[in-house]
């Protein structure tokens, strides 16, 4: 695959935004806010960064991605579909009985998701284990993980930050999708994480702070992470919950509610408009 341009990556992310919303509409429930905040990052990983092959999804030595914030999985399904792992329309069975597209990632039904997550704070440890295996195998593979800011309140996350820092796992790169909200309200009010960057740095991580919706910043951060040899990297990405759909942006009721038909149509119209504006730019 030729590497897409920044503009093509943006278009791709927008295309996935539309599929996320269609999936959630069909399912009748699910998590739009955190899927839309994460989609630019996941798009950059699968379309630009990672050494993966949809024709041979479980090939040895591949780069791996673990979605620790499992409720954002519509973003992962949409990305995998557009990358060629399965047909986009298949994902419209999301959350339906018998579907491999479970409400949270399930590696038994769909092995390419790499880990079963959804109980927060656990996926990052699996990513550490995968990175340690890559170390033993000396195969140059890299492991990526995406977690939520609310998720960072879990104790297991800090166990893992301490451990991966001490093991100097430079083949591990974690995104923190900092969309500032969790179910019960603002992260800063429910259980404040600040000063987050300093905290993580003090656990012996290389920390990069970016705008998680600026494709060029995501790609520049990934380049920097690849060149660090003695520390794991945490990319703290400031994001907007519900990004791309104006009536969802930073409106926390969209954490775990799916759109009605009218809301879906309105959102798709806006995303189409965004896409044609981008194409002009």
């Amino acid at each position: 695959m030729n590497k897409p341009s920044i503009n093509e990556l943006k278009q791709q992310a927008n295309e996935s935004r539309k599929l996320i919303l269609k999936m959630l509409y069909e399912a009748g429930n699910g998590h739009p806010g955190g899927s839309l905040s994460a989609i630019d990052i996941i798009t950059a990983l699968f379309f630009h960064e990672m050494n993966v092959d949809p024709k041979n999804p479980l090939k040895e030595g591949r780069d791996r991605f673990v979605l620790s914030k499992g409720h954002g999985v519509p973003a992962l399904y949409a990305t995998l579909a557009h990358r060629g792992y399965f047909k986009p329309e298949e994902t419209l069975t999301l959350r339906k009985l018998g579907s491999v597209f479970q409400g949270h990632p399930d590696r038994v039904r769909l092995p390419i998701v790499e880990a079963s997550t959804g109980s927060l704070g656990q996926g990052i440890s699996v990513a550490q284990g995968l990175a340690m295996a890559g170390r033993i195998n000396n195969d140059n593979s890299r492991v990526y993980c995406l977690m939520g800011d609310g998720e960072t309140q879990e104790g297991q996350v800090w166990e893992c930050l301490m451990s991966a820092g001490n093991y100097k796992l430079s083949n591990l790169c974690v995104f923190l999708d900092s969309n500032k909200y969790q179910i019960d309200g603002k992260v800063s009010e429910v259980m404040d994480l600040e000063p987050l960057v300093q905290k993580i740095e003090s656990f012996k991580w290389n920390v990069i702070h970016i705008d998680g919706h600026k494709m060029d910043q995501i790609i520049a951060a990934l380049d920097k992470a690849r060149n660090v040899t003695d520390k794991p990297t945490m990319i703290v990405a400031d994001t907007i919950k519900g990004k791309g759909v104006s009536f969802m942006e930073s409106v926390n009721k969209w954490h775990g509610v799916s759109p009605t038909k009218e809301e879906l149509d309105k959102a798709l119209q806006e995303l189409d408009q965004n896409q044609s504006n981008q194409a002009v730019n």
């Binding site: 656990q122 990052i124 550490q128 284990g129 166990e159």
Partner: peptide
């Protein structure tokens, strides 16, 4: 760190 150890072991097993 038993919880992290359990998760790390799963990652090793997946590899």
């Amino acid at each position: 760190q038993e919880a992290n150890m359990i998760g790390v072991a799963a990652g090793l097993a997946f590899a």
